[in-house]
Amino acid sequence: MKQTPGEQQLEIRFRPGQITKSGFMGDDTRHIHDIIEADGKVLERFGLKKADIADRLTLFMDEGKKELEGKVDLGEYVVQVHWARGLMPCPFGEPGLHPKVVVHVFSKASRQEIRYSQLSVHMIRKHGFWGGKGSVFRLEPIDVIRLLKMGGNGE
């Protein structure tokens, strides 16, 4: 499919070495908009909106930040936040920079962990983008929904 110059720029910003070392696409060959659409359908199945997920991820991140890199026991979950120096732009190109914050959320019940960045939360909330498959900070919507016990019976 022919891309507009704007879309070409967008695609470039998602490549390795533009904003992050490995980029945001992993080994996913789908178009960014197709990835967004497919992940959006998973949320729809569970009756969830992207803001619901982003709010929950933000909550964990904010709790983790309070402990300045130490582990925070939130009962069912353990959260740890790493905050590195510097800021990064969103690959979608809107103005603004995001702190280099990485969050680990560990579920004591399922023994599963998800890892995401502050930028991931922004991209989910604003663009519905969870990362290309195989990318370092890709979150599988279904894994997040299960781990955070969100949504109804969409299985």
Binding site: G17, T20, K21, H82, A84, G86, K100, V136, F137
Partner: peptide, 11 residues
């Protein structure tokens, strides 16, 4: 210099 996950320069 601290290694930042996915950091272009720190990697």
């Amino acid at each position: 210099i601290r290694l930042v996950p996915e950091g272009i320069c720190t990697t």
